[in-house]
Design a binder for these strands. Structure first.
Lengths: 346, 346
DNA sequence: AATGCAAATGGAAGCGCTTCCATGGAAGCG
DNA sequence: CGCTTCCATGGAAGCGCTTCCATTTGCATT
């Protein structure tokens, strides 16, 4: 059967040193002779010893536990690609850094969402928190978590959080700008924009960038119409239908994410339009769905997995206090326009 | 600042009882007068006391920690819908039951995958393990985990594991059968089947069910061709192309999952085929992508989130030893054929 | 040779909880 | 009425680790 795991004392005994010395070796401590260190490591090896994280946490007050919190409507079936990829990247970094991560899905806007998050970190003694949008812009929440002594890294903050707290993300505003420039270059001049929910500030930046590009060309609000969805495929189909009926008759539909773009594509198909001949459509994120729909979607690639990884690395650096300045840090990763087959000259 | 969390002793002091009594109350113990119990609970409330899970685990030997392990090629970008939904369901159940869950992505077939999983559960002191395919069919691994004293629940086991260990899943064989019957009913008689990887035994059952239906109609191997992919969109496009070039000229392509079906759809579009007029295509899982592609995919719905939830519930029941027979249990949830727009009479 | 100081080690005291065992009193029994 | 039995409670001993502090050792200074 199981046969009880060896403890630190077993290692100490076998290597002929005190328990405390083993602890030092295990924690990369200073002041241990190489000879002793080697002896201890050898004993660790032979016994196949693994520290008991619970005991370490209890004694040391460091749980080495992180939490990843994301919102998603409990009924919208999948947690989206975005969250899943973020999580995967974060998980990998945790593995590499010897941390563990609790994942919690807290539906947004429920009255007790703050309470639930706070409870999670206090009850489980989490040392760090990764906040996905739209929580990454919830400054009240962030302040509250910080006040508990738990470090925070925000993913894709869009508003006041950016610069004020540690974060990772891409330049959403530039992404929106790039899309607009591309379409303008193709000769389009009447646009529909499918925006996301208001709270999602970084997605709003995509709109802002889009608008800036248009303004630079002297196009004003009369040449485009903005509709707000909730990032789902369904809202993409509904809203795109409204856009297609709009008196402006847009020649291109720009979407704040890929799922809505897929919805727009589907709505266009349903009307018998040929894409991209009759209408150009763009997305944002470069989720797998972007390559799967027909025709494959022109979109803005975002390195989501890398974002998750960076978030953890940043958090751990902050926790160790090593290799990081005291001021809030924002790690901006590169985005890239991916030209596929839903855009064409007008 | 933080101000240190209250401990069990604080609660004991405030309610005028011994620490043990508080512990008893907290653990739903017997032999406590109602009056005392109420007094303790009140103190807990007032202090906003939360047990320290690490201390509890250290003292009691019960970590209340579960692990969820899934395989996915480290480079195939997203962890798929299937795993993500499974995880989400499991996470929800954990929340409800007061357990925590570690999520680990262990790429399949790496030489040390068994070692990594074993290490995870011993090092983190996990009490239970949820194994997604194809690990759910890895009986050697399962036996090894069980030998460590860690309970296991398999998700969608397909081979010897089913019935031999605790598990949850749908009736994959019946699902495959249903698809075949549907297509047969529409007048199809020449089929292509895109199967998954060999190790994924429950996906093989889909093929088996499909074959059984054909056999019942007296169709034999001459009327269909089976190709093996790896469940990805890409393999769907490649394999479907081969199928379309095949001398058999199938009128319907049946896929072992939705991603491959989406790939097949895309390959068909690329050749200018009109779906479903020129070709019928079916998937399996009813992942979000099934509704997103154009035209939306006829597929077999699988309650993946519920499966994850059930897996945790089953695991916890086994851990508590309550409300469960000693023999292995298999919880089979319902599947359902979802008729959308990629199937038509031939 | 005496002094100092840093590096290397160990002893002891917990971290916050549960488990085992002991205690006192109320109830049950002949 | 003395005995066992059961219930409700508390005392004490750890779970496996880290932290604080004391001690020992080596070696450069004066």
């Amino acid at each position: 059967m199981t046969g009880k795991r060896p403890t630190i004392d077993d290692v100490a005994r076998l290597s002929g040193v005190a328990r405390v010395t083993v602890s030092r070796v295990l924690n990369g401590g200073q002041n241990v002779r190489d000879e002793v260190r080697a002896r201890v490591m050898q004993a660790v090896e032979r016994l196949d010893y693994k520290v008991n994280p619970q005991a370490r946490s209890l004694a040391g007050g460091a749980s080495r536990l992180l939490a990843f919190v994301f919102a998603s409507d409990p009924e919208s079936d999948p947690n989206s690609y975005y969250e899943a990829a973020l999580e995967l990247g974060a998980l990998r970094a945790c593995l590499a850094l010897g941390y563990q991560m609790l994942v919690q899905n807290v539906p947004d806007r429920t009255p007790d969402c703050h309470k639930r998050i706070l409870e999670l970190i206090t009850a489980q003694r989490c040392e760090g928190l990764i906040l996905a949008p739209p929580y990454s812009d919830d400054m009240i929440l962030i302040e509250a978590v910080l006040a508990q002594g738990c470090k925070v890294v925000t993913v894709s903050p869009g508003g006041g959080s950016r610069g004020r707290f540690d974060g990772v993300g891409v330049d959403d505003e530039a992404g929106g700008y790039d899309v607009a420039v591309e379409l303008l270059g193709l000769g389009h001049s009447r646009f529909g924009f499918l925006a996301g929910i208001e709270d999602h500030l970084s997605a709003n930046l995509r709109l802002k960038g889009f608008q800036r590009a248009l303004a630079e060309r002297g196009l004003d609000q009369a040449e485009y119409v903005v509709l707000r969805g909730d990032f789902t495929f369904r809202s993409g189909t509904h809203l795109a239908a409204r856009l297609l009926d709009h008196p402006l008759r847009p020649t291109a539909i720009v979407c704040a994410n890929d799922d809505m773009a897929a919805g727009a594509l589907s709505a266009a198909h349903a009307r018998g339009l040929t894409i991209p001949r009759d209408l150009s459509i763009t997305g944002f994120d470069d989720a797998p769905v972007a390559a799967i729909v027909w025709p494959p979607l022109t979109t803005v690639h975002q390195p989501v997995k890398a974002l998750g990884q960076r978030a953890v690395e940043l958090l751990v650096a902050r926790l160790n206090g090593t290799n990081i300045e005291p001021a809030p840090v924002f790690h901006q990763l590169d985005h890239a326009l991916v030209r596929r087959q839903t855009t064409a000259p007008n």
